[in-house]
Simulated scan of single mutants.
Amino acid sequence: MLLSSQAERNWEGLCSVLEDVLEDQSHRQLLALELGSGTGQHVMRFAQKMPFVTWQPSDIKDEALNSIKACITATHAKTILQPVHLDASEPLEKWTGVTSDSCDVIVAINLLQYSSFKTAQGAFKGAGQVLKQNGLLITYGMYAINGTITPSCNENLDAELRRKNPEWGLPDIDVLRQLAYENGMRLERMVEMEEYYKCLIFRKL
Rank of each mutant, 00 (worst) to 15 (best):
M193E: 11
M190A: 09
N183T: 03
V107Q: 04
L2T: 12
E160H: 06
W95F: 08
L170Q: 11
G128H: 12
T96A: 15
V43C: 12
N183R: 12
T96E: 13
L161V: 12
G97D: 07
L2F: 11
T96L: 08
I201T: 10
L22F: 04
L33N: 05
K204W: 07
S16I: 03
W11N: 01
F52R: 02
Q6H: 07
F52I: 00
P171K: 15
W95S: 03
L92F: 06
I106R: 02
V130T: 09
P83W: 10
A77K: 06
T148C: 07
T96R: 15
S67M: 07
G184A: 09
I173E: 11
A32M: 06
G169R: 00
I138W: 13
I201D: 13
V98L: 03
D104K: 04
V21I: 15
V98I: 14
K125G: 11
E188K: 01
A47E: 03
N10H: 10
R186H: 12
T150F: 02
Q178S: 14
K204Q: 02
H27C: 13
I80V: 14
P166N: 11
L131G: 01
R163N: 15
S16E: 15
C199I: 00
S37Q: 03
L161R: 01
S152D: 04
S89E: 14
A7H: 01
G141A: 10
D20M: 15
T119Y: 00
W95P: 05
G97P: 07
E182W: 10
V130N: 13
V84C: 04
V105A: 00
P83Q: 11
L30D: 03
K118F: 02
R28W: 13
S67G: 05
D59F: 05
V53W: 01
Q82D: 12
C15M: 14
Q6N: 12
D62Q: 11
